[in-house]
Structure formats: C-alpha cells, structure tokens
Amino acid sequence: MALYKLFHYELLTAKRSLHECLYPIMVFGLIVTLFPLSVSTDPKTLSMIAPGVVWVGVLLACLLSMDRLFREDWESGFLDRMLLSSQSLSVLILIKLLAHWVVLGLPLILVAPLLGLFLHLTYQAELALVVSLLLGTPILMLIGAMGVALTLGLRNQGLLLMILVIPFFIPVLIFGSSAVGSANQQLSVTGQYGFLAGLLLLSLCFVPWTIAGILRIGVAN
C-alpha cells in the first residue's frame, strides 16, 4: 500500500512538470528526421537503415531522459530521505524507475512505430519494433540509472553519463535492432526476444541492488 502510494506520488511529480517529460520524445523525433535528410530518401534504403536509426534514437532519448532521474531529488535533499527511509532502498529505486519508465519510456514506444512508418518499415517490423522496445527500454533505463548514480553531482554529468553507459548499451542495441531488421526481412525473431528478455530479468535482479550500493557509498554528499 505504502509502495503504491509512493508510485502514485512519483507519477504526480512527473505530471506536474509534464513539458519536461516531452523533451526526450522531441529529441527522438528530430534525430530520426535527420537520417532521410542526410542519407537518402529512397524507400528501400530507408527501410534498410530504419531499425538501426530508430533504435539509436530511442537509446539517445533514454539517455537524455535519465539526467533528471536523481538530480532534482539530490538537489532538494529528498534523496537523503530515501536513503534514510525504513523501506528497502532497492525497492524504492525500483519504484522510481518504474514510474520513470511509465512517464518517459512508454511514450517513446508509442511514438516509435509512427516514426518507423516514415522510414517505410513493414508491419511485421513495426510489431517487432514495439515488442523489442518493450523489452529493451527498461534495460536501457536500468543500466542508465547505474550511470546516473555513479555520476551524481559531478560536473558535465550528462556527457560523462554517455561516455560511461553507451558501451553497456551495445548488447541491447544489437539484439533490438536485429529483431526489427529480421522481422523486416520476414525472418524469425524469437531468438532476439529471448535474449532481450533474459537481459531484462538479469538487470532487474541486480541493478536496483547495485544502485542502492552506489548511493550508500556517499555519492550524495
């Protein structure tokens, strides 16, 4: 009950500054728009590069959205209260991440097929895009959150976060874009889904706990 309440207030906090939650989606749209302008407008070429373009766009949008995950709470001192709560810290972090994903991840997943349409993806590929994003964006956010915790309060946090975290995004990017690509060529994609689901489970088990450990070493001071 208390945990549901916390989730509710996380969503409420996000709702009160809704415009900020829309920035990553705008960035996503803009990144994808750049490719037809810079590569080619030929439908065949676009459909070929589309899986990579959409996935890279999502990846960057996710990273940009991560910046606000702990920043405001750290500045206002709310993070201290989370650390001093009698609830388990990793559960609190998981709730926070879940709210973050609902507010910032889900809209990306809703917008992605539309942008896929502009890039001439087939219907199977659109489906694969949505499924792979459903499995993949939570992993991106979990890994990104570790980076945010490590870089909390440092100068140039945003850039540093990218340098630290992008190498760890590579497996998700490979399997996510390959799922969309394979579906585009009417090949089976269960293998990629399986791998993404496995990664998701693995990161769900370990990441909240790792983030709690990082926050406890005194990064918040």
Binding site: L3, L6, S76, G77, F78
Partner: peptide, 20 residues
C-alpha cells in the same frame, strides 16, 4: 535542505513522507 519535492504540495509531501 528541506528534502521536499518542489512540484508537490505541503500535504502531498507529508503523505509521501508517511509512505516512506
């Protein structure tokens, strides 16, 4: 620092504190 969320009201902040 007060440790209060800027975009929540006073009551909402205290309710959140109770949940914590």
């Amino acid at each position: 620092k007060a440790g209060m969320r800027e975009t929540l009201s006073a009551v909402e902040n205290l309710q959140m504190d109770c949940a914590l």
